[in-house]
């Protein structure tokens, strides 16, 4: 962890006047020339699978509130937009355990990630890549319930267990 991110972490823990537990991820990656069609098909295919592997992984992770993909700028950029609890760096190992294979498929369409590097094997490199491509947000990050983590939302679902 760099000194800068450590200071940010300490500032978060000290509360800094708020008990906000959620953070934004706005991961924007350049798509390879001609890759948009295949990428769109891949992402739509994930959603059509009997069990969407992204949904299954996020269910298990229990720290992501919302997640979606979008193609930006005439299909030249892939955006992964999420709201999650805690510190991305702190949970990177778990994130990669569960989503590494999906990201391998996605990153095959991205032009600045070495395709021969599986995410689960190149974890530090993947973290550095995400941090370099995360636009977070401009200005403040709004949440209707900033102090409530996913763990406290799930039990509120009708019929929810655990």
């Amino acid at each position: 962890m760099s000194m800068q991110s450590m200071q940010a972490e300490q500032s978060r823990r000290s509360g800094n006047g708020t008990d906000q537990v959620q953070s934004p991820l706005t991961l924007v990656m350049p798509i390879k020339d001609g890759g948009a069609q295949g990428l769109r098909a891949l992402i739509e295919g994930l959603g059509k699978a009997p069990v969407n592997p992204v949904d299954a992984a996020l269910d298990e992770l229990r720290s992501v509130h919302f997640a979606r993909f979008a193609l930006l700028e005439n299909d030249t950029r892939l955006a992964v937009i999420t709201s999650y609890d805690g510190n991305f760096r702190t949970y990177i190992m778990d994130f990669v355990d569960l989503l590494g294979p999906v990201f391998d498929q996605l990153l095959a369409f991205v032009d600045d990630w070495p395709a021969e590097h599986p995410v689960q094997t190149y974890r530090d490199e993947f973290l550095a890549y995400v941090e370099a491509h995360d636009l977070r947000c401009v200005g403040s990050f709004y949440s209707a319930y900033p102090e409530v983590p996913v763990n406290d939302i799930i039990p509120l679902r009708p019929g929810a267990e655990g």
């Binding site: 805690g86 763990n151 406290d152 039990p155």
Partner: peptide, 19 residues
């Protein structure tokens, strides 16, 4: 460090523990 920071000195990891 993970155990100390997330589980011992915070509670967001589990339901209802808050901070």
């Amino acid at each position: 460090e993970f155990v100390m920071s997330e589980w011992i000195n915070d509670g967001v990891f589990a339901r209802g523990l808050g901070r």
